[in-house]
Nucleic acid binder design. Structure first.
Lengths: 339, 339
DNA sequence: GGCTTCTGCTCAAACGTTTGAGCAGAAGCC
DNA sequence: GGCTTCTGCTCAAACGTTTGAGCAGAAGCC
């Protein structure tokens, strides 16, 4: 392929080699009908020989697509990136992006210094054509600003305060009801606690609400224990769970479930015999622990694929292969609930 | 902040509001000494009011930095992205990037259609200023092409065939020797097998070589079992390990170790009593299994940070805070070896 | 044979930025 | 007071691309 190693090759170089104008080369490359077939062949040959790659900056300046979308994660890098949720999201987005010849730009808001709208800059600087946003707090003002900015944005997750935004999400509340009822109905547990996620995030709110709703439907007093989605917060809650004499726990994610199980085991509480546990997410952890964790499977890859696919048309890609709607979350039965 | 929502704001808009030329605004924004302080203030005011964000395409066309680096993973998306190694790498790179106001572009080679040098296009299209490459096969011709392309590239991992390339890596061979000797010396195991990683990757080669070297130093016949870093390949090897009457296994990564342990447990083999196991990586899995897996800790985040930091100067960032050299890998003692 | 239509290009402007060269007016110097 | 120096800008070109307008020559039409 490319002969010339460094030193960028431009349209001008190709044009000179072929002996036509720059315009002719540009038109030939996009298969314009008014360019002779023979010329197109000679242009393609020169492109291959010289290793010409179109300069994106030049293209973008003329108002054309850059060919990149951003994945915006407003939290700090260490907070979210280490979570496997992110891996699933990235996988889904990357699949759709790759299939449509788009690059993925990862944008985290690591420095609060540059203001709350740091990720806004990415979009408006013209580096990307659109963005998928995830893991933002419900009341993040930057997100609202982004959505109203007029640039293509799809939210991954539920943002009730931004009903005008295009978003992709699952019914966490309903899934939480199902999980809680499994403890009550299938395993006869009546003294139930919920390990809450961070209440600034809608997913955590919905999971908690589903738990409470299911308890109330079965005339059970719901016990809420604070948590923040971290394994540590789950571990920290173990004492409290033991003291309260709880016999069933629904954790807002698997990591907290695991943290609690770890500490409970150390304290001699047997799971699931003494205490049944159900988690949420199924991003990997719940399958490999002993006992394995019964959990609500979140189709994160499929959700991310959908979000990225939603971005295609606004971003100027019309003939994309359609992406199926993500499945609803469902309960994956493992050992920790007693099944 | 920004008043005008959509419709991009350019230097021209700022210049008009302030009542100076575009050049004056541009110079004021980079704090040029020949622009009056008062003018600078008025420019800053107008920038804030209008929500001006510099257009990267315009900037890049003039030959300036784009402000983005790529993380190139030549394998297909599903193959590598789902691996937690990737999460650690991304975390490290993102930290350094964020600290230096760089965006991270993720480039995978999902479609073989576009030729072996698909990721080469990312670099040469001018979308990024440089790239970190990881998880490439040792003999990937695209990498060689990339390295010789003259654009800033840092390899994450050892590539003996590309000694001229800037690369960041650890001594896998030495760590593998240490791990194997731990089985021999600390636990008295004499019938040892190695679960090999894919031999097209240098890390897998080095880990195997270290195992063989340690065995030979202790006059032990090394047993090599094929694998490909996947949990399934580890599981598939379990039968063979049981048949061979092996009492110690060194796996080239934790996932294979886990796969083998899972199947061995199902077959009634006790780990570590009957069979001591040591893994490699320590990216998360080895800590949460039962028994937990003794493993070689790979400082992936630190390695990625180093790689990204190496890219800063070639990419035009001179005053960056230095990143410390990554630590050497070390053995983390857990349950699976019998410690 | 003089007209129109078609073919296969070229010309030139534009996108938004940066920066060396230059210039007008003020200030300083003796 | 006439010179130089300084201050604070402006001018204009350039980066690489795309695309509407236009043009020369060939072909077709009657």
């Amino acid at each position: 392929m490319a002969e010339r190693a460094a030193g960028k090759v431009t349209l001008k170089d190709v044009a000179e080699r072929v002996g036509v104008s720059i315009s002719a080369v540009s038109l030939a490359l996009k298969d314009h009908p008014r360019i002779a077939e023979d010329t197109k062949r000679r242009v393609q040959l020169a492109v291959d020989e010289l290793g010409y790659v179109g300069n994106i900056a030049g293209r973008a300046l003329r108002g054309k697509r850059v060919g990149a979308i951003a994945l915006i994660v407003p939290n700090t890098s260490s907070h979210v990136l280490t979570h496997t949720y992110f891996l699933h999201v990235l996988t889904g987005i990357n699949e759709v992006a790759a299939a449509n010849d788009l690059q993925v730009v990862l944008s985290t808001n690591a420095d609060e210094l540059h203001g709350e709208v740091a990720y806004d800059r990415v979009l408006r600087s013209g580096l990307v054509d659109g963005a998928v946003v995830t893991s933002a707090a419900v009341d993040d003002p930057g997100i609202a600003h982004l959505v109203r900015g007029g640039l293509p944005v799809v939210l991954l997750g539920r943002y009730p305060e931004l009903p005008e935004a295009d978003s992709v999400f699952i019914d966490d509340l309903d899934a939480a009801v199902t999980a809680t009822e499994h403890l009550i109905v299938a395993h006869g547990r009546r003294r139930l606690a919920h390990l809450c996620g961070p209440q600034g995030h809608q997913s955590a709110i919905d999971r908690r609400d589903g738990f409470v709703q299911a308890c109330e439907a079965h005339r059970i007093e719901p016990i809420l224990v604070e948590g923040d989605y971290s394994e540590e917060s789950g571990a920290a809650a173990a004492d409290q769970l033991a003291e309260l004499g709880v016999d069933g726990v629904f954790a807002a994610n698997d990591e907290m479930a695991f943290g609690a199980m770890r500490e409970l085991a150390a304290a001699g509480v047997r799971v699931p015999a003494d205490l049944a546990v159900i988690g949420y997410d199924d991003f990997g952890l719940s399958r490999v622990t002993t006992p394995s964790i019964t959990t609500v499977h979140v189709p994160a890859v499929e959700l991310a694929r959908s979000a990225a696919a939603r971005l295609l048309k606004p971003v100027g890609i019309t003939e994309a292969t359609p992406v199926p709607a993500p499945p609803e979350p469902h309960l994956v039965l493992r050992q920790s609930c007693g099944c």
